[in-house]
Simulated scan of single mutants.
Amino acid sequence: MTSPVEAAGLRPRVDKALAAFLATERDRLIAIDPALTEFAEALEDFVLGGGKRLRPAFAYWGYRGAGGADSEHVVAAVASLELVQASALIHDDLMDRSDTRRGEPAVHRRFERRHRDAGWRGGAGAFGDNAAVLLGDLALVWSDELLHVSGLTADELGRARPVFDEMRTEVTVGQYLDVLTQATADTSVERAGKVAQFKSAKYTVERPLLLGGAIAGATPELQAAYSAFGLPLGEAFQLRDDILGIFGDPSQTGKPAGDDLREGKRTYLIAAAFQALDAGARAELDAALGDQSLDDGGVQRARQLIRGSGALTATEARIDVLMAASLAALAAAPMDDEARTVLGALADAATRRTV
């Protein structure tokens, strides 16, 4: 079955826009200093080497749903969302001390290895960390630049700008709330929900939809419908991500089994388990969270505790409730029928995935 991201040939068009932009930026960096070649190529590899392209798809069909005509300028504009995503993932992997992303070394590990292989001075780990911070920053800077050089008209860009800015602020503060929640060991469902909303849910679905709608000059009624559709769907997407972070197959996710446990993620799934477990089991699960040395046996035990608490079933049920609300909003939205069909398929793909 064809992925809904392929509708209108979108995925290869997004990849083409990204490849062209990144090639131009690579040449610009090399002109500054040839030593920047590897720096530029690392971002190219990261952005072009994988990713579901869901955010550009939601933005593009938000645009089409508001009556916007197909345009390579719009495809380039929504492709800028992949650079926001790259920035978030590079920084997220660094903060979580993740070793891999999509089955390849995380960016900080890539540069750590480069330092070690070259026999450079100083600490290899610190060099890798510094490079990842800067590369993530560069991706965020370039996201803004790609939006501006996409070819949108001044009016289109003026409508898109506030949505784009708000989205980047939200994902950044969401990342901090995630770090803060791990540090304070806050396991409340309320805190987990807020982190999920701002770290991932809003910038995965709602803001891309609103961005596309803004470019097309969508009515306030349609933009409200996009929010009603996008917010619960974005939360459902994050809940699926949380489940995969603990129960996912590493051969599918590209990350080691139990990484979210070792990173101490205080997700909705974990919060639901804490609510249901008795004091002894809760203390056992709490000890596993954030334990960098947690082995496969420890991961399996934590999975047993979570599953036995009913938290996995409760989280799946929560996804179903959110999906029902999201799809009801989509059905009632005053929009183009082709876009409605594709957005429905994207919603299903976002929440039924295994990676």
Rank of each mutant, 00 (worst) to 15 (best):
G298R: 08
S143K: 05
E166R: 10
G103M: 03
S71K: 00
E338V: 15
A314F: 02
S326T: 08
N130T: 14
T181V: 13
R340T: 12
L222C: 06
P12W: 00
A86L: 08
L233V: 11
V205C: 11
V74F: 00
D241P: 00
R301V: 06
F21L: 08
A214P: 07
F164N: 01
T313I: 06
I32V: 14
D165Q: 13
L54K: 06
V171M: 13
L210V: 01
L285V: 06
E112F: 03
Q292E: 10
T351H: 08
A328K: 15
D96G: 11
V299S: 07
V5G: 02
P56R: 04
G248Q: 13
L146C: 01
L261T: 11
F274M: 13
G230A: 11
A216T: 02
Y176M: 12
G158Q: 00
R26T: 14
D129P: 14
A57G: 06
L346R: 08
E112R: 15
E221A: 11
A347L: 05
V173L: 12
R262V: 08
L89D: 03
A257F: 04
T172W: 05
S143P: 03
G151Y: 01
D27Y: 03
D144Y: 12
R114P: 02
K255I: 08
L346Y: 07
K255H: 11
S227N: 09
A317G: 15
L322S: 07
A7H: 09
H115A: 12
A225S: 13
D336M: 06
S143C: 11
R262N: 11
A106C: 05
T181P: 12
A324M: 04
R26Q: 13
A228D: 07
V133D: 09
L244V: 15
M95K: 11
G49Q: 00
G9M: 05
Q182Y: 04
A349T: 11
R101V: 05
D337S: 14
D96Y: 08
R318A: 15
Q300P: 02
Y63K: 03
W142I: 06
L54R: 07
V163L: 05
T315A: 15
P4K: 02
G125D: 12
A154S: 12
L222M: 07
G193Q: 03
A225K: 06
V355S: 14
E284T: 15
Y63L: 03
A236D: 06
D96E: 12
A350D: 06
R161V: 01
T253K: 14
G151E: 02
G290E: 05
D155P: 00
D165S: 13
A328L: 10
A288I: 03
Y176Q: 13
D96K: 08
E38G: 15
R109E: 10
A350Q: 09
S98I: 03
F21Y: 12
A345T: 09
